[in-house]
Design a protein around this nucleic acid. Structure first.
Lengths: 299, 299
DNA sequence: TTAATTGATAGGCTTTAACTATGATTAAGT
DNA sequence: ACTTAATCATAGTTAAAGCCTATCAATTAA
């Protein structure tokens, strides 16, 4: 029978391509890892690793088995975290993934409540783009995501948390800044500053803009919301900002945030987990806590 | 770190509810299993088993962890069979599932060719109803299914093998037996004998019959195709039989098999596997072999 | 040529999973 | 009520497996 430790050694070799480093990562000596890996190869009757003088490579068979090995280790990890959750459903480590256009603006509003209602949970925060987060969630590296819901997430389980309106950020002296009643149609013909590709906010915001007959300003793409905000402030254009990112800066000297009349552009923020995730009690507590925290802020 | 052997012990206890039997199933002595399980409980800090003198029960925590344990063991099993397949892609055990209305009539036509093209594969044949087969395929107990494709199989991967026409089985002296040109519409108003519930052939056949305005004969349900055939032969009614089941009995004294004009009622027989099943080379060989075997028989 | 890097080998220690034999507790039979 | 059978736990022992340190051999870089 295969041993889980051997599979760890194999995946470590794949990650480090180096026996010494891999051994260190597994907290064993290099001869131990070397020996166990050889034993595994012998047991399977397959060569998994090509030992070259200067760099270690996996054979095709090795590549394929590493994938299987990871699945086994992931299942084993879920067994263990499930056991931990059974010990105390409201304790343990929890890795939370958020996107960059949400994390810095949302976390201040929710973390205090979360730490109060779940005092024994250690929250680890991970900031990344949607695609990466979903991948990591699937791999079990993350436990919970909070991000705008998209159709591609239907294979996961999700809980609607709140709708975040998008607001129009303009320089103070922009004609649209003084308009009494602002609607999406007013964007017709405008050029809109956007985030870099890969940020889902860009796609969502531009979706609304294109529908209203606005165009993307292709001369520049901001790499963060803060950059974008400063570009607007310095008069380089206008853009859509999520409400949480606009909060607290409404009275800026140079910036104006305009609220849209109905239909208000929004992004629906959801909490996403793997189906059958073992710590549902914890998830429900998080959903409830976040909804409560947000109910005061998002009207 | 959890050990795979411990997980086997746990699942064995779940299956047998008896330490001695479970130990036997794992090929170890009872004290060994007893001790290891206790150590596991200690390690997790959870009681998994309620030891009553007369019957052993799993605790709720145990029930939940058994589910996780099975997932781990399944993944480990896939690792091992993947390794075996890499050693020789065309060798090893292969568990093939078929439905009862297909197996006895199809297997004689395909097994000889399969054994010739894949001489080092040991085919284990499993006969069961669709629902059970899909469950077992998902659990990894089966490798390959051959059955009529239904929409509920879309989460699996499937390969169309052949279309099997349905024929009208009547007693020789039945009016429809002598009709020159037979079409589904001729079933209008007829009462059709059927198989018991659970057989997918029943649903498919009756689908065609209902559409043609025929009704189900509710006074009796046959538990096998052979029973059904004999009922028709003894003049109790008419029914639809798959072409393979009709073959070789066309010239019976008492039975008549009628071929339908277009649109011919059919059932589409497919080969179904888990997505990412590790032995695709083998699967492709099977698909090719079966298609070839059938090409002579189904016109 | 020398020094450094890297994986393999050797020998020894420790842990542990396995066994057999036996004990303790309960359920059922006489 | 006593005995027998069944069943899981305990005790003590053994064999194997995994790990360590120390060292070797091969290759690369200086």
């Amino acid at each position: 029978m295969i041993k889980l430790r051997d599979l760890e050694y194999l995946t470590a070799i794949d990650e480090h391509k180096h026996f010494g480093k891999a051994a260190q990562a597994c907290f064993v000596s290099q001869p131990t890892l070397s020996g166990q890996l050889m034993k595994l190869e012998q047991q399977l009757g397959l060569q998994l690793v090509e030992r070259h003088r200067r760099n270690v490579m996996l054979t095709p068979a090795g590549e394929q088995l590493v994938k299987e090995a990871r699945k086994v280790l992931q299942a084993a990890g879920e067994f263990e975290s499930c056991a931990k959750a059974l010990l105390d459903p409201f304790a343990g480590d929890l890795h939370l993934g958020l996107i960059p256009t949400l994390a810095p603006y949302l976390l201040p509003h929710i973390m205090a409540d979360l730490n109060t209602t779940l005092p024994n949970i250690n929250f680890f925060l991970h900031e990344n783009q949607t695609k990466v987060l979903l991948q990591q969630l699937d791999e079990g590296k993350l436990d919970v995501l909070i991000l705008p819901y998209l159709a591609e997430m239907e294979k996961f389980e999700s809980y609607q948390l709140f709708d975040e309106p998008l607001m129009l950020a303009t320089p103070k002296n922009h004609p649209l800044a003084t308009k009494k009643s602002l609607s999406l149609a007013d964007l017709h013909g405008e050029k809109i500053l956007t985030l870099a590709d890969g940020h889902c906010l860009k796609d969502q915001a531009m979706g609304y803009c294109f529908a209203a007959g606005a165009k993307e300003d292709n001369s520049f793409q901001a790499t963060s919301l803060e950059t974008l905000r400063h570009m607007v402030a310095s008069g380089m254009g206008i853009t859509l900002l999520p409400a949480l990112a606009a909060q607290g800066n409404l009275a800026s000297d140079t910036l104006h945030y305009g609220k849209f009349q109905a239909p208000v552009p929004i992004r629906g923020i959801s909490l996403v987990i793997r189906p059958n995730y073992s710590r549902m009690q914890c998830v429900r507590a998080i959903v409830a806590s976040v909804r409560k925290s947000l109910s005061d802020i998002i009207t």
